[in-house]
Simulated assay, not measured.
Amino acid sequence: MSSLCDPAHAPVGDVGMAIMAIDSRLKAIHGTPSGPDSEQQQLTDRLAASLSPEEVDDVVDGMCTLVYVFMRWLRVTYEEHDKDVMEYVVPGFVASMRMMPRSIPPETIPTMTGLVVAAGTGLSPNLWRKQYGDWTENEMSPLEATALLLAEHINRLTDDRDFATRMVTEALSATDPD
């Protein structure tokens, strides 16, 4: 019997915009060879501010898709080394979120942790979250931070600052537009 949270039933959303936002944040944190890319961050912020409510919902679904893709990659990678993804991802994820109290309200950490665990066990993060009602404005930054922290975890594992972004953009490029 298929779960109500099976990823096959989940909307994919605007993964392109979601990965662009994550890439922009990663570059703002680490900079580029020429320094921090504040111009790209400003462009991304302006684009996000211009989105309609439906487009925002698509980006939220896209962020959840990224959480799923990143956790799937991490699960497979850790399992190849006989390790449990939950043991190696969740504690550091929670600790990182707790270090960002201005961006991540403490009351959102359990929900974001639930998203990560849902994705790590093969469930759709957005369908898992939908069980508990609509997304709140208070959860938007934590959702972006969740995808960002998972991308950063992947980048550290691969010792490649662009690996997570490249993995998603290559998958998007290979996808049939229909």
Rank of each mutant, 00 (worst) to 15 (best):
A151W: 04
W135S: 05
M63T: 11
P91A: 07
F93M: 06
D58Q: 11
G120T: 10
F70T: 06
G114T: 04
S34D: 13
G114D: 02
T121R: 15
I104A: 08
S50E: 14
Y78R: 07
N126E: 14
L115M: 14
H81C: 09
R98N: 13
V67P: 06
H153L: 10
L149K: 05
R75N: 10
L150V: 04
W73L: 09
V117F: 00
V60S: 06
T44P: 12
I104Y: 04
E139K: 01
D45C: 02
R46S: 09
G31H: 00
M140E: 09
V90D: 01
D58C: 01
E137A: 13
A145H: 14
R72W: 14
T136W: 09
L149W: 01
T121W: 04
S50P: 12
P91V: 07
A49P: 06
P125D: 11
D58P: 00
T121N: 13
T113L: 00
D134N: 08
T108R: 05
L148C: 08
R129G: 01
L148V: 10
T136R: 15
D58W: 04
E54R: 13
V59H: 01
E54L: 14
E144K: 02
M86H: 15
V116H: 04
P110D: 01
K130D: 14
A147G: 04
